[in-house]
């Protein structure tokens, strides 16, 4: 390597070192704040699907402690609020979209026959297309859907159509976001399945 080559290498390494140190320091300084923000955002989504809307950050923690019961099982976790016919169950959802992981919460009514609410907390889908799974317009299509299971195999029936829904078992999809919709569909099915299993264990 020539002298100038060595010089170029050394200078690049020094700059890279300074940049890496800056990034590391920044991350170290703000990581707790970011973690707390993420916790608040997650809690807000969870409480929102359980019916507690528009809460401040301080109210969130209080309600999480007093009004929500968390149950951890081998197969997963679920949250519950209210009593009797007014109770609502929420389960976390995890799935894969086109570009990356998709996460969110789904809530069901007391006997797990109706989807109460649905919310996405994390997605990296194409803005304007797949990212529309995280929108009020899309949530509205899922809210209030009856949970259907096929009589023979006990499979949960939930289908996001390609385009307009063709029948009662389908909801309108997002044109141009086939993979994001497919991922969301799988995620919803597995979340409902898990909720049904956990409820059966409980009874």
């Amino acid at each position: 390597m020539s002298d100038s080559g060595i010089k170029a290498f050394v200078i690049t390494m020094i700059v890279a070192g300074v940049c890496a140190t800056t990034l590391g320091t920044t991350h170290h300084l703000v990581k707790n704040r970011i973690k707390r923000n993420q916790f608040i955002a997650e809690s807000r989504a969870l409480l929102s699907v359980l019916g507690f809307k528009n809460l401040s950050a301080d109210e969130l923690e209080g309600i999480l402690k007093t009004s929500v019961r968390k149950t951890q099982r081998k197969t997963g976790v679920f949250w519950e609020t209210g009593t009797g016919k007014g109770s609502i169950y929420a389960v976390p959802m995890k799935g894969r979209g086109l570009w990356g992981p998709v996460e969110g919460f789904l809530s069901l009514n007391h006997d797990l026959t109706v989807i109460k609410d649905f919310m996405i907390t994390k997605q990296e889908e194409t803005p304007g297309l797949g990212a529309e799974i995280e929108s009020e317009a899309f949530y509205r299509r899922i809210r209030g859907r009856k949970v259907r299971t096929s009589a023979s195999s006990n499979e949960v029936i939930f289908k996001i159509a390609r385009g307009k829904a063709a029948n009662n078992n389908e909801i309108d999809g997002i044109t141009g976001a086939t993979e994001s919709c497919r991922g969301t569909q799988e995620m919803v099915i597995s979340a409902i399945k898990r909720a049904l299993e956990m409820k059966n264990v409980q009874n």
């Binding site: 800056t22 990034l23 920044t26 991350h27 703000v30 970011i34 923000n37 993420q38 608040i40 955002a41």
Partner: peptide
Amino acid sequence: VIVFDQLLKAYYF
């Protein structure tokens, strides 16, 4: 850019 992104995540989530 990454520093700005982190600050935004920390102070304007």
